[in-house]
Design a protein around this nucleic acid. Structure first.
Lengths: 248, 248
DNA sequence: ACAAAAGTGTTCCTCTTACACCCATGA
DNA sequence: TCATGGGTGTAAGAGGAACACTTTTGT
């Protein structure tokens, strides 16, 4: 079998956001019609990598284009390398559009976390992109469902081990918002009293003294994430739980 | 910036083994001299991907070549995509050797786990490869140190969450061997009584009734990994620990 | 008999879990 | 005053951590 000399590399980003109720992902339309391919078909934002560009740089570029934001939390997941993952009409169109002649596109999955707010929602809707409930998505083009599923699985794992949750929340948030986020991502119900006890005693979040306004019930206090406490905790936390002492 | 049309993709494998004392990784020599590059320089086994070959297939091929083994535990880690990660003499040689003309090689890291035994050790040494203590490695060619460090970090994380340890041990092993493996990979000392209690009560390993022979101390019993118990446990285990009930 | 590693139990304490009511606000 | 979600405490049980001696074998 000869050496593969003719592979293009792309990145595809699963951009997650949280609206207080459910986990959303940013989808765009294919945006071109070609011999049976509908321009309305939904996909993840992505791009081919450019010369002298690393993969994280390509992913950041995709995110800047699709959300207008810089400095987004970004994490690589898996690589999708099936030789026929892009083929047929789709491949023809890609070659024509980019003026290349390739048989194969290998793609690298990334997931990104953004703080949903009116600004970003209006930006993305002007772009024709949509924030869709992750649970409600049934079909995407090519293997994008698989890429999304992989991203979601990675997010779920990270969420229970690192404080990525705070990337999805506004700077100030209520305990309930944080709990709802955990529940939405993991699909698990959490006891509110136990959650408060645990999260507050951890010191990871600090009360601001500010409260909700104009709500027809007892207003909730706003908290902020305490990154320095987290950094300190990391040193102690990464251990097995059947350990009594350790040697460096 | 123009589209990157000319990228080669490779895989590099960190092949780990355990000799009962310390964690080893399989290193090979560069195996060519070229204008200042020494054939003795050490590297991870790797290869360019071939046409119609997926990345896991390429990694399996590398492993079959370097260890003579099939069906090895294999896991993808990160992608290394810095545009200049291969450059200069190294790049020149690669282009000449493969008869290609590329500016860039993106590589995908894999780690593999093998059961060290006399058979595989003699195979690899016939191939000129060496099993080296991971702690003692100071330099490898190109960015292979970085690839190895990433693989090791992944292994450490996996080891404390999934039963990959058993991929590194013979089918029958003693409790002490298992404990030593954990200690070698994580760099942590574990209390023997607590370890036994935990691992035995988990049901993950089952006694065979066979014992060590010709040892000048009380002979240890051999155990085997109980995969079915593990599979059942997985369903219950993947949960946060502040949860009381869950909804599917 | 001795050296060397295997194997074994208990206590203390922390953390998890389960569970129900009062509070503050706007309408 | 009522509807709504915010916020609070306690008791029982499980699991983690710390710790020292006896057993079995070969020499």
């Amino acid at each position: 079998m000869p050496l593969e000399k003719n592979t293009a590399i792309s990145v595809d980003c699963s951009v997650f956001g949280f609206d207080g109720k459910s986990l959303k992902v940013l989808l765009i339309r294919r945006n071109y019609s070609y011999d049976g391919l509908s321009a309305d078909d939904l996909k993840l934002p992505g791009a081919m990598i450019l010369e002298n560009e690393t993969l994280p740089e390509a992913a950041s570029r995709v995110l800047a284009e699709s959300t207008g934001l810089d400095n987004i939390y970004l994490k690589q997941t898996s690589i999708f390398s099936a030789p026929d993952r892009v083929s047929g009409k789709e491949m023809e169109w890609i070659c024509r559009f980019h003026g290349i002649n390739t048989k194969r596109v290998v793609t690298v999955g990334y997931y990104a976390l953004v703080k949903l707010n009116p600004g970003i929602v209006s930006y993305t809707s002007r772009k024709g992109a949509k924030w869709v409930d992750v649970d409600s998505i049934r079909t995407l083009i090519m293997d994008h469902m698989e890429i999304l599923a992989d991203a979601l699985a990675n997010l779920q794992r990270e969420m229970t081990h690192t404080p990525v949750a705070f990337e999805l929340l506004p700077r100030k948030f209520t305990v309930q918002e944080l709990q709802s986020l955990f529940e939405a991502v993991t699909g698990i119900c959490i006891d509110n009293r136990n959650f408060r006890k645990k999260i507050l005693s951890s010191g990871l979040i600090s009360p601001t003294g500010e409260y909700e306004k104009n709500v027809s019930h007892k207003p909730a206090q706003y908290y902020i994430f305490n990154r320095s406490v987290y950094k300190k905790a990391v040193k102690d936390k990464f251990r097995l739980n059947f350990i009594n002492n350790w040697t460096y």
